Deep mutational scan, measured.
Amino acid sequence: DWEDIVRFLRKLFELGEEVVIGDWHNHHREEIKRLIEWLEKHF
């Protein structure tokens, strides 16, 4: 279910905002944000 995936990604992203998950999070933050925005537009 796409909504569950979007919710999971958003939760992960919000957690990442508070607890910076090292370089991985910083590197992928923009991609995650773009992916969430893309999914919201399409689903």
Score class of each variant (00 low, 15 high):
residue 1 D to G: 12
residue 1 D to I: 13
residue 1 D to Q: 08
residue 1 D to N: 10
residue 2 W to R: 02
residue 2 W to A: 01
residue 2 W to H: 01
residue 3 E to Y: 09
residue 4 D to I: 14
residue 4 D to C: 15
residue 5 I to Q: 01
residue 5 I to P: 00
residue 5 I to F: 14
residue 6 V to L: 13
residue 7 R to H: 05
residue 7 R to S: 06
residue 7 R to W: 07
residue 7 R to T: 07
residue 8 F to A: 07
residue 8 F to H: 06
residue 8 F to Y: 06
residue 8 F to W: 12
residue 8 F to M: 11
residue 8 F to P: 00
residue 9 L to A: 01
residue 9 L to T: 00
residue 9 L to Y: 02
residue 9 L to I: 08
residue 10 R to W: 14
residue 10 R to A: 10
residue 10 R to T: 10
residue 11 K to S: 09
residue 12 L to R: 00
residue 12 L to W: 07
residue 12 L to A: 02
residue 12 L to V: 06
residue 13 F to V: 10
residue 13 F to Y: 10
residue 13 F to Q: 03
residue 14 E to I: 03
residue 14 E to Q: 13
residue 15 L to G: 02
residue 15 L to P: 02
residue 15 L to Q: 04
residue 15 L to E: 02
residue 15 L to R: 06
residue 15 L to D: 02
residue 16 G to V: 14
residue 16 G to A: 14
residue 16 G to Q: 06
residue 16 G to K: 09
residue 16 G to L: 15
residue 16 G to W: 15
residue 17 E to A: 13
residue 17 E to L: 15
residue 17 E to K: 14
residue 18 E to A: 14
residue 18 E to L: 14
residue 18 E to V: 07
residue 19 V to A: 09
residue 19 V to G: 14
residue 19 V to R: 03
residue 20 V to F: 15
residue 20 V to H: 09
residue 20 V to K: 12
residue 21 I to F: 13
residue 21 I to S: 15
residue 21 I to D: 12
residue 21 I to P: 09
residue 22 G to P: 12
residue 22 G to D: 09
residue 23 D to R: 01
residue 23 D to M: 07
residue 23 D to E: 12
residue 23 D to A: 05
residue 24 W to L: 08
residue 24 W to Y: 08
residue 24 W to A: 09
residue 25 H to R: 05
residue 25 H to N: 12
residue 25 H to S: 03
residue 26 N to R: 05
residue 26 N to H: 12
residue 26 N to F: 08
residue 27 H to M: 13
residue 27 H to A: 11
residue 28 H to A: 14
residue 28 H to F: 15
residue 28 H to N: 05
residue 28 H to L: 15
residue 28 H to E: 05
residue 28 H to Q: 07
residue 28 H to M: 14
residue 29 R to T: 08
residue 29 R to S: 14
residue 29 R to L: 14
residue 29 R to F: 10
residue 29 R to K: 12
residue 29 R to G: 07
residue 30 E to V: 04
residue 30 E to R: 06
residue 30 E to D: 10
residue 30 E to P: 03
residue 30 E to C: 06
residue 31 E to M: 13
residue 31 E to A: 13
residue 31 E to L: 15
residue 31 E to Y: 15
residue 32 I to K: 00
residue 32 I to E: 00
residue 32 I to Y: 05
residue 32 I to H: 03
residue 32 I to D: 00
residue 33 K to G: 04
residue 33 K to W: 13
residue 34 R to I: 11
residue 34 R to Y: 10
residue 34 R to C: 06
residue 34 R to T: 04
residue 35 L to Y: 03
residue 35 L to S: 01
residue 35 L to V: 05
residue 35 L to P: 00
residue 35 L to N: 01
residue 35 L to G: 00
residue 35 L to F: 10
residue 36 I to T: 04
residue 36 I to K: 02
residue 37 E to P: 01
residue 37 E to R: 07
residue 37 E to S: 06
residue 37 E to H: 06
residue 37 E to M: 06
residue 37 E to L: 07
residue 37 E to D: 04
residue 38 W to S: 03
residue 38 W to E: 04
residue 38 W to F: 08
residue 38 W to H: 02
residue 38 W to D: 01
residue 39 L to R: 00
residue 39 L to N: 00
residue 39 L to C: 05
residue 40 E to D: 09
residue 40 E to L: 15
residue 40 E to Y: 15
residue 40 E to F: 15
residue 41 K to M: 08
residue 41 K to Y: 07
residue 41 K to W: 09
residue 42 H to W: 15
residue 42 H to K: 11
residue 42 H to I: 11
residue 42 H to Q: 03
residue 42 H to Y: 14
residue 42 H to R: 06
residue 42 H to P: 03
residue 43 F to L: 13
residue 43 F to P: 01
residue 43 F to E: 02
